[in-house]
Design a protein around this nucleic acid. Structure first.
Length: 233
DNA sequence: GCGACAG
DNA sequence: ATCTTGTCGC
């Protein structure tokens, strides 16, 4: 595998120096590497990933929680100029570089990660969570906050309600209500995990909040670094 | 041409 | 995502 043979520096460079047209071709090449079934060992550490952008500077935060106790054990952040533009469907090329910067700072590798964004529920079935999961060959779950593609019916209002996210007759993800009467989230496969398992872990991790704990925490961490530049270490 | 469009 | 005050609800 190409990504496996490259160090992180080259990996980042090849991702952010690509053109949008080439990016689409690359997604179509890499989509075949996604493993959409459960393929992982015991989960003891679960990571949450999120990125914020402020005045052209991207801030990534990766948080690690013990699983299933959901105790916060480690946080890492990184800052990097956002070079690739925001283009719906090509978010990975804008966010993966800074995410990798943050990930290498962790003392341990998470056994699975939950990513803020889509995975299989993507125009080419290769969203950010898939790209990150395949690049690191790590189990990944996608948890988006709004629709990118597909149609669905509104889940009933109780926590745990689920509906299919469908496109072209295929179930590409699930709409999951993680809290009573609160806007549902969009769950899909990232890598090495089945859709049902992704939904189960996402719901388990969302305790009292709309977003799964790891993602919510990563969002906060990135947001704090995003506010008023990045001077406060 | 028009509308849709993760973060 | 970010720009922004108050406000409704547990």
């Amino acid at each position: 595998m190409v990504a496996m043979l490259m160090n992180i520096h080259d990996t980042i460079n090849s991702i952010e120096s690509i053109t949008p047209k080439e990016a689409i071709i690359l997604q179509n090449e890499l989509r075949g590497s996604v493993i959409a079934r459960d393929d992982f060992g015991d989960i003891k550490l679960i990571g949450g990933v999120d990125v914020g952008v402020k005045e052209g500077i991207a801030v990534a935060a990766v948080v690690m929680f013990e699983y299933p106790s959901l105790t916060l054990v480690e946080t890492a952040t990184a800052t990097r100029k956002a070079v690739f533009p925001y283009v719906p469907g090509l978010l990975a090329f804008r966010e993966i570089p800074v995410i990798l910067d943050a990930l290498v700072k962790l003392s341990r590798r998470p056994d699975i990660i939950i990513v803020d964004g889509h995975g299989y529920s993507h125009p080419r079935r290769f969203g950010l969570a898939c790209h990150l999961g395949v690049t690191l060959d790590i189990p990944a779950i996608a948890c988006g906050k709004s629709r990118l593609v597909g149609e669905y019916r509104e889940p009933s209002l109780g926590r745990g309600s689920v509906e299919d996210l469908v496109e072209g007759g295929e179930v590409i993800g699930k709409i999951l209500r993680t809290r009573d009467n609160v806007k549902p989230v969009f769950i899909s496969v990232g890598h090495r995990v089945s859709l049902d398992t992704a939904v189960r872990i996402a719901l388990e991790s969302a305790r009292g909040k709309r977003l799964p704990e790891p993602v919510g925490m990563a969002h906060k961490a990135a947001s704090n670094r995003t506010k008023d530049g990045f001077r406060k270490r």
